[in-house]
Simulated assay, not measured.
Amino acid sequence: MSLYNSDKEAADALSKYYQELKQEIAKVIVGQEQTVELLLTSIFSQGHCLLIGVPGLAKTLLISTLSQVLDLDFKRIQFTPDLMPSDIVGAETLDKDRNIKFVKGAIFSNIILADEINRTPPKTQAALLESMQEYSVTIAGVKHVLPKPFFVLATQNPIEQEGTYPLPEAQLDRFMCSVYLGYPSFEEEVKVVTSTTTNEKPTLNKIISTEQIIEFQQLIRRAPVAQNVIEYAVNLVHKTRPRTERSTADTDNYLEWGAGPRASQYLVLGAKCHALLNGKYSPDIEDVQAIAIAVLRHRIVRNFKAEAENITVEDLIQRLW
């Protein structure tokens, strides 16, 4: 049963709630408007997000604040070299009557913060693969469905390489967006220090319910999109693939590997969500471009020539527009 009388009414409600969510999150998080927008875009598009930034930029605070205003369960998993897959997904154990019982792991929550995901070996990283794609985990041949909505936010520290394990391409491809968190400006840092060195703590209001989030996720899937916008998104992804029919000179010269079909899907879904969040009922090419860097940057690999000439992934993506 729909919570709204029409898709137009639901779209108007989503845009209104989006503005309220940003205002509520801003009570705790100073700046980071684009990061907040991409996180909410990922959640409403049923995607996941990879957050990359140095320590102390409020990554954990941001996601816990997000869970509060969305009224969702939140669990944090600290990834370490000795973390086991069963610590994440759960395991079967014997109870006091010697009956086999499944004990749920930390993955059984609405929002999962996979903190420093690259500090654990690939075997443990792979424990997230099924949950991120199928929204379930399989233990001893039995499938256990995860609660909905389900959202994984993984963090990485870009400057500490010792004791880290690079994420496999299959794992990276599961993330809808990757977001680079930069240092705050001088004015923003003054506000942060002023607000966090007193006893005052802001009271956060719950803006939106679980049922509404699921309703909006379905609404975004139903949102109409023009054929030329779909073709633009797919063409943009094809241009990232070196030495193919639609590759460009920049692609052939500077890229080792391009994005796969999942990138095209997320570009269209992200464009739909971006349009609806900002008060439009259907996305255009500008909406695809607004989400393109976050969707593509972790799916394409630069070659040595690009690194030597200091050409960034973001530069190359913008050249493909």
Rank of each mutant, 00 (worst) to 15 (best):
Y180T: 01
Y180M: 10
L181A: 08
L181N: 10
L181D: 08
L181Y: 06
L181M: 11
L181P: 06
G182L: 04
Y183M: 08
Y183T: 07
P184Y: 02
P184W: 00
F186V: 03
E187R: 11
E187K: 12
E188S: 01
E189C: 01
E189P: 03
E189W: 02
V190F: 02
V190G: 02
V190M: 02
K191M: 09
K191S: 07
K191D: 09
K191H: 06
V192N: 01
V192E: 00
V192M: 08
V192F: 03
V192S: 03
V192P: 01
V192T: 11
V193Y: 06
V193A: 14
T194D: 13
T194P: 04
S195R: 13
S195W: 03
S195P: 05
S195I: 13
T196K: 12
T196Y: 12
T196F: 13
T196N: 14
T196P: 06
T196S: 15
T197K: 12
T197V: 01
T198Y: 06
T198L: 07
T198R: 05
T198M: 06
T198S: 08
N199M: 11
N199G: 11
K201R: 09
P202V: 15
T203G: 07
T203E: 11
L204R: 05
N205K: 12
N205T: 09
N205W: 05
K206S: 06
K206E: 11
I207C: 00
I207K: 04
I207Q: 01
I208F: 03
I208D: 02
S209L: 08
T210W: 10
E211D: 14
E211C: 09
E211K: 15
Q212S: 15
Q212R: 09
Q212D: 09
I214Q: 15
E215S: 00
E215H: 04
F216L: 08
Q217P: 10
Q217S: 09
Q217A: 09
Q217E: 08
Q218P: 08
Q218M: 14
